[in-house]
Amino acid sequence: MVAHTVAGYRFAGLLLVFFFTASRVTRIGEARKRALDPEFKEGGQRNWKQVLSNSGIASILVVLIALITGGEDKCLDSKESGLITALIGGVIGHYSCCNGDTWSSELGILSKSEPRIITTFKV
């Protein structure tokens, strides 16, 4: 959280949005998840490995951004700096991917239908 805040309020905000939305989605259907999953953890408790995997790459990227910009707030503007734009895009993409993974696993288990492969739609 500190690295995200030092790199800019937008990164801290992005981390908080990821954390709060993922935490909220995790709590949906807890009773059903408890019945379906023998490894169910109350409130979606995470261990340090899960936390590191969901924030490690983004933390490295925001530290690089802070070092390159000197802590100055930068926007997505590839004309000004393609590197900064790519790094910011990496942070956004990282949290989008993590949120997609969290949401799909937390909500997918609640589905009453069989999962399907999105490339072939086969069960």
Rank of each mutant, 00 (worst) to 15 (best):
H94I: 00
I57H: 07
V62T: 04
K41G: 06
A66F: 15
I117A: 07
I57N: 01
S59K: 08
G82W: 09
S104T: 13
G56E: 08
G93L: 01
E39N: 07
S96E: 06
W48A: 14
N47I: 03
S111E: 07
P115N: 10
G43C: 06
I65H: 00
S81I: 06
G100L: 15
S113V: 12
D37Y: 00
R116G: 11
F40C: 06
W103Q: 09
A66K: 14
K41E: 06
E39P: 02
D73W: 10
I117M: 08
V62N: 01
S78V: 07
I60R: 02
T102V: 14
S81M: 02
S96Q: 07
E42D: 11
Q50Y: 10
G108C: 09
S53T: 03
T69H: 05
S78F: 10
K41N: 07
C98I: 06
I118G: 13
L67P: 04
Q50A: 11
L61H: 00
T120C: 12
I84T: 04
G43A: 08
I57G: 01
C98M: 11
H94G: 00
S81N: 03
G93M: 00
E42I: 08
I117E: 07
L52D: 02
V62K: 03
N99M: 14
E106W: 05
I84N: 04
K41T: 05
K33N: 13
G56I: 10
Q45N: 13
G71K: 10
L107H: 11
L64E: 02
L87K: 01
L61E: 00
G44H: 14
E80M: 04
S53L: 05
K112C: 13
S81W: 01
G90F: 05
S105E: 15
T102H: 14
I65R: 01
